[in-house]
Nucleic acid binder design. Structure first.
Ligand code: MN
Ligand code: MN
Ligand code: ZN
Ligand code: ZN
Lengths: 143, 143
DNA sequence: CCTCTATTGAAAGTAATTTTCACTGTACAG
DNA sequence: CTGTACAGTGAAAATTACTTTCAATAGAGG
């Protein structure tokens, strides 16, 4: 899975005429072994522990590349920071977000997806993406 | 409807021990007669035409109060600017957003709402709010 | 090796929003 | 009606998250 994503990114790099660099390898490793919804700040701190030399701007730039290559997706959960999550080709999911502890749970619901498509059709829209997030308090925080 | 919202805001102001000011009245009038999904920048420009004295910070502060009082809702449609939309008590809707021309269409779908509640229940979440936005190209822009 | 450029880190720049602060104005007590 | 306390205001500075600039560096192919 990690291997597959590394492969996808490598091919993306090549196809685009970009270069494989030490920094990109390090950031990719850190990203793939990090939480599924990580902020740049968090990833940066994680990286710096082992690799002091790496610049903030490089992390920003590299995560954009991950998104472009299809191995990551940018998300905004309303806390002011962009998060990047792991994406596996052909998969899609939405999110439950705990506004107390920040826990993010992923879910898939084909019926909802279908109804969204219906709504779009009724209004003549051609949908490219959508965002469905349910915000509340998770089971643990309710206790 | 406008009258009702003005009343709601007036009561909110009183209940909170805040003060009714010329600026708040002007901003409220402008907001209520503006587009249903207006950015602060847009509202500010609209205001300034008739009321030069009003400060940027006051518009920001006042719109937050509108949201707190329940007559407005903050929304983020991914264009980098916060928009405030009119809210009528007891009503809820979601959005279709045209990524080409910026058109925003509102819709309600009780079945989707129900399924969302089911998903939350399955995961033990107590949901406070949710966000469902469908992004794509509107009928007009497709032509 | 060499050369052509893509890439990098640090610092400066942006854009949206928030905070600070000295002054002003509202509302209620007297 | 005042007088006052303190909420509210505008302008400017600050903050935050992110992006761009730029001089130096380093992949990749020849
Ligand atoms: Mn996810
Ligand atoms: Mn709306
Ligand atoms: Zn929680
Ligand atoms: Zn359109």
């Amino acid at each position: 899975m990690k291997r597959a994503k590394k492969q996808v990114f490598r091919e993306f790099i090549t196809a685009k005429g970009l270069r494989s660099t030490r920094q990109r390898d390090i950031i990719l490793d850190a990203f793939l072994s990090a939480d599924r919804h990580i902020s740049i700040e968090e990833l940066y701190r994680k990286l710096r522990a082992k690799n002091p030399g790496i610049g903030y701007a490089t992390v920003y730039r590299t995560l954009k590349l991950f998104a472009e290559s299809g191995i990551a997706r940018e998300t905004q959960f309303g806390d002011g920071q962009t998060r990047y999550e792991h994406v596996t080709a052909g998969e899609h999911h939405d999110h439950l977000v705990c506004t107390r502890c920040g826990t993010i749970v992923e879910f898939e619901n084909e019926t909802i997806e279908q109804l969204q498509a219906d709504v779009a059709r009724q209004h003549g829209f051609r949908i490219d993406t959508h965002k469905l997030e349910l915000y509340g308090i998770c089971a643990k925080c309710q206790r």
